[in-house]
């Protein structure tokens, strides 16, 4: 099979000739364009305005963007986001790879149970996550402080949500809890398609399980790794983290991500123009990062 043919698959272009791919892509592209991209173009337009979201609009040009780079609150939220990228995205991807390779190919007793357990965090509304983790981290009666007390590490008891030195990491840790399962689930579905005979051949060649993981599982899962990385990265920057932070610390003590700051600007302070500028920058940031990941991961 030549590389040329591999790329093109001529026989696939059968329904509408060279327009065939567009037929397949049309439903998704159309609905995305109308209901996501078109409104977002409006958001971009708002970012050039001084507008409270209700009254009259005044054209500002790029002033909002200039102000943003001089706004210490923006930079504070930016650095919170950096922590969340590590704890919502990078750590779960690595841990997820390890866990899923442990349970992906074995017929261990109880695999289904573990798989269900890892799915569980996906089903809970973020308001409830907020309440429960407030109990876990509480300075007065929290689970963590109680455990520390029992094992004699009283001196490490602290108000986890109540200091700049701990709060962003405490919130980030919730991200590991939440996204680890997501990573495991996607990796598990990917592992199913790896041909078992490749592993058998490697075993005959004397490869131990670590080597099998590095030379077979990892490369075979590269597309899944891109998916998990991209999705968790987006969630760490936009929606997901937003719900978690607002229901736990409310953004205090250096925990406020850009998305929450933008939301508060828009709907608490009525700075819809400025908030839109933040959103636009956030989206550009996500685009750049995800494109880098895709280039590296899929090696194009």
């Amino acid at each position: 099979m030549s590389a040329e043919k591999d790329k093109n698959f001529e026989p696939l272009f059968d329904i509408m000739g060279k327009f065939t791919p567009y037929i397949y892509i049309l439903p998704t592209l159309a609905i995305t364009s109308v209901f996501l991209i078109y409104p977002f173009i409006n958001t971009f337009f708002y970012s050039l305005l001084k507008w409270d979201g209700i009254g009259e609009m005044n054209f500002l040009g790029i002033t909002n963007y200039i102000n943003m780079f001089q706004d210490p609150k923006f930079w504070a939220s930016f650095s919170a986001n950096l922590i969340y990228i590590v704890m919502y995205s990078i750590i779960p991807v690595i841990a997820g790879l390890i866990v899923s390779s442990l349970i992906g190919r074995t017929e261990l007793f109880g695999v289904r149970f573990f798989r269900t357990v890892f799915f569980l965090p996906q089903v809970i509304a973020s308001v409830a996550i907020g309440i429960i983790f407030s109990w876990i981290y509480s300075s007065q009666f929290g689970v963590i402080n109680q455990i520390l007390g029992v094992i004699g590490l009283d001196k490490y008891q602290t108000a986890w949500f109540g200091h700049r030195s701990t709060a962003p990491y405490a919130v980030g840790f919730i991200g590991i809890w939440l996204t680890l399962g997501f990573a495991v689930i996607i990796f598990l579905s990917g592992i199913q398609k790896i041909d078992e005979s490749i592993y058998e051949a490697a075993k005959i060649d004397g490869a131990n399980s670590t080597q099998q993981f590095i030379y077979i599982t990892l490369p075979e899962l590269r597309y899944e790794m891109v998916v998990v990385f991209v999705v968790t990265l987006i969630r760490s920057l936009s929606t997901n983290i937003f719900g978690i932070v607002s229901s736990t610390t409310g953004g205090s003590y250096g925990t406020r991500p850009i998305s929450l700051y933008a939301y508060e600007l828009a709907f608490v302070q009525y700075e819809l123009g400025y908030a839109s500028a933040l959103v636009v920058i956030l989206v550009v940031l996500i685009l750049v990062l995800t494109q880098i990941i895709e280039r590296i991961g899929e090696g194009s």
Binding site: T32, V230, T239, F242
Partner: peptide
């Protein structure tokens, strides 16, 4: 049809 659709979160629009 992939990244853009996931990243344009509801609060933004």
């Amino acid at each position: 049809t992939t990244v853009v659709g996931i990243m344009i979160a509801t609060p933004f629009i």
